[in-house]
Design a protein around this nucleic acid. Structure first.
Lengths: 213, 213
DNA sequence: GCAATCTCTTGACAACTGTCAAGAGACGGC
DNA sequence: GCCGTCTCTTGACAGTTGTCAAGAGATTGC
């Protein structure tokens, strides 16, 4: 088993004597640009040249900041997901009743599904590819773990506000909610959008009480 | 909306005067061979030459039986999934108590996860790609529908044997079970296999009663 | 046994891919 | 101002891809 922590490796053999921040700054700038393209085309069909074309740089610069394509992709998704795992913290902190929490949680789900559908399909793309490509697994399993923790904070707070214990494992709670969200995403992207959102809200409202003892 | 039924289009402009079955036979033969390669490498990284190499034919023959790569892939997965949607029919027919059904269902899930993991990851791969690639959607949504029906037959029979009504929509039941199965598949392929199977059995046993009123 | 059709192979094509080397510009310290 | 380093561009490379045309075998109808 390789180390499980270092997600931000420095590129192949970049010197980086100077600012030390400027380098990471550019990396993030490039990552944000790349995420746009990746969210549009998906992992497999996004070429480094396409990423560069949609940025203000030329195609050679990618290899200055990343050692290869896999490192770029992994960095991008890790970078994005790191900003997402706190998405429901406000919901958890501000709600004072189980009903409030449930409504706010469902609303947040709808919001992110609407606003960031390309990012979500990219994440599912990467996670699926990790079933084939060994080199993606470490990052994917790490991210999946943080998402599970994120959901668990919501579910356990929901139970706390309800005054009962949770009746599901963190893994099961994440699995079922993720299944519903993924289904909604597919429906949202392939069919009528409003219907997908409505169904998701209904299903989450129906499911969450079942996580309680 | 295009037609929703014709999954077995004839290729671009193949004449096919003769046996009329021989042609489909070869198609299926090629599909089964291609499925092996696709299950191993995934949708994006499987080339037509690789498919041909793992078969007894040369790379040109693919274009004799399929008009392009997309048609081949869609045909393969549709062909495979058509054999799978009856997987739990025996379970549904033979069980005489809810406990029997639940045990048999979980056992079947474990069996298919063990025996056909590459086929399952291929399906999830295709479904995810359909979020990016318009041309895959029709087939994916059709297959997804038949899988939902398959799960619904299990769940509604489970309720019938329990003497109560189902408390979930077909969509929700499929969504949550699919989420758990996908999670188990990822865990099975990336970590310890036995653990993934045990967790899946436990989660399914815990979840199924929750589908009842 | 001939001819027409089906079946499959071979070879080529244009396009695209990740990668990298060579070098131009910019920027900083001195 | 000058030199060293950082930053980025350009151009090229070898390999791979989907696609298709030309034609060789094989099979069938007559």
């Amino acid at each position: 088993m390789p180390s499980t922590t270092t997600t931000t490796k420095s590129p192949a053999k970049a010197p980086r004597r100077a600012p030390a921040d400027k380098f990471d700054e550019r990396r993030n700038q490039l990552a944000e640009s790349a995420l746009q393209t990746l969210g549009e085309l998906g992992y497999a069909r996004t070429s480094l040249r396409e990423i560069a074309n949609n940025s203000e740089f030329s195609h050679g610069v990618v290899h200055y900041y990343f050692s290869d394509k896999t490192e770029l992709i992994v960095y991008c998704v890790t970078y994005y997901k790191a900003q997402c795992v706190r998405r429901y913290d406000g919901v958890v902190a501000d709600s004072s009743s189980p009903e409030d929490l449930l409504d706010a949680f469902a609303a947040k789900l709808v919001e992110t599904l609407t606003d960031e559908a390309p990012m979500h399909r990219l994440w599912y793309d990467l996670r699926t590819q990790s079933m084939f490509e060994e080199s993606l697994r470490e990052a994917v399993l790490m991210i999946d773990g943080t998402l599970q923790d994120m959901i668990w904070r919501v579910v356990s707070r929901y139970a706390e506000l309800s005054g009962v214990e949770v009746a599901m494992s963190p893994s099961a709670a994440y699995g079922v909610l993720d299944g519903l969200f993924q289904q909604a995403l597919l429906s949202y992207l392939t069919g009528d959008q409003q219907g997908a959102l409505d169904v998701l809200v209904g299903q989450v409202h129906a499911l969450m009480p079942l996580t309680l003892a």
